Simulated scan of single mutants.
Amino acid sequence: MLRAQINTADSLKYFSQGLPDKVMVDCLTRIREDIGKGMNVHEAFRRTGKFNETVIGLIQAGSDAGQLHEAFRALAGRLTSEMKFQKAIKKATVMPGAIIGVLVGAFIISQVKIVPQVEEMLSGVGQEPDGLTAISFKVSHFTQATWHVFILSVIGLGITLWKSEKVRGVILGIAMSKWRLFRMLIMSLRQMTFISTIRLLHSNGINLAKSIRVSANSVMGTPFYAELREAADKYENSGVPLSTAFAKYTSADSQVVHMLSIGEKSASLDAQLDMLSEMYEEDAENYMAAFAATISFLVLLIAVGLIGAVFIGTFLPIFLMGPKMMQSGI
């Protein structure tokens, strides 16, 4: 609709008509009313509290460049990629995760209910546990003493992750520092976001410094936000080349710096930004596929390990108790 020269307020009005999601309809109605009162499009979206800074940053970029339809097109592509990634992760984790939960419950029940009965039967015939049987009983004693703490800890961790953005950020940082594939995935997504935003703005006549500052809003909440704004200030006020500003003041990949340098020297910056955007989009898709496959494999390993733990923890003491019972009968 925007591409067909229908204004933003009317586009939102027509789009919201017939939507089954009443919450979204109310949200779009508020946005349309705020736009009608003269508020900037991105500020109207931010005021609802329903959209993250990446969405708002891209909308601001499109509005500033006079290419709002391109911003929404870019958002549609990004959201489609995120939905594919989320679908792949759910497919790899939801069912195995449910199985793991059941297996953890089965293990706890076996250690709390079944193994103590085996221990009591062995004690009733006057036999002392030894070897693997003694180890199995010790594991049971430990589980009986700590399973409450374990369950409460898991529940507490889940609530904390759900409520605290700061904790999620800390865990994300640790995961990125320890797991190269995860770090490459997150970095690709972030760099794809701000590079595509810079490309959108610069190709529509917005100067580079402002393009970089606005693109920083699309990655707000990440280290790139402060880095990009500092790079924009240095490029605008100190006269350093754009590639040098990125090399010194951001943690962007060396490939980004190299291609920006080529763009500056050959006056083909728009073309280099296009190639960078496409390259990181492809990289992000590849990393998403690899990450989903790795998660699926890890979850499978955990499930197999728990199955083994349930079997060994429950049935091994029973098997080992047979000879002891026979000895007591003799």
Rank of each mutant, 00 (worst) to 15 (best):
T80I: 14
G105V: 05
L276E: 12
I206P: 07
I198L: 01
L185H: 11
F15R: 00
K324S: 04
L19K: 03
V115N: 07
A232N: 12
H141K: 12
L2T: 08
A216V: 01
F72Y: 10
I212L: 14
I198R: 06
S203P: 00
H202F: 14
D10S: 06
Q127Y: 10
D64K: 13
R3D: 13
M325P: 05
G313I: 10
T8Q: 05
W179F: 14
I302G: 04
G105Y: 12
E33P: 00
L273S: 14
R199G: 01
V104P: 04
F142V: 12
M259S: 00
G205A: 06
G124C: 01
F107H: 11
I171G: 02
V167A: 00
G77W: 07
D10V: 09
K234Y: 09
K265M: 10
A71H: 07
R47M: 12
G313N: 06
K138V: 08
A9D: 10
L306Y: 09
P20A: 05
A216K: 10
A98I: 15
T197W: 04
T146C: 07
D34G: 01
G18D: 04
R199F: 08
H148Y: 11
K91W: 12
D21Q: 07
T250C: 01
K84L: 02
L298T: 06
N7D: 15
V41A: 03
G18R: 07
T8G: 01
G221I: 02
R229Y: 04
L201P: 11
E82N: 09
D253R: 05
M325L: 11
F150Q: 03
K13M: 05
T222Y: 14
T193Q: 05
P96S: 00
M24Q: 15
V167K: 06
M279Q: 14
D233T: 03
E53K: 10
L75F: 00
R168E: 07
A9Q: 01
V149I: 07
A92V: 04
F72H: 05
S243Q: 09
F51S: 02
S164L: 01
H258W: 12
I109T: 04
M326Y: 14
Q5K: 13
T48H: 00
M187K: 14
P323T: 09
I56E: 15
D34M: 15
V299A: 15
Y287C: 12
A209Q: 04
K50A: 10
L185W: 13
V104T: 12
S254Q: 13
M187S: 08
S63G: 07
I114G: 05
M192R: 14
F319I: 08
E120W: 00
I318G: 09
F107T: 15
T80D: 15
L2W: 02
V256F: 04
R213E: 13
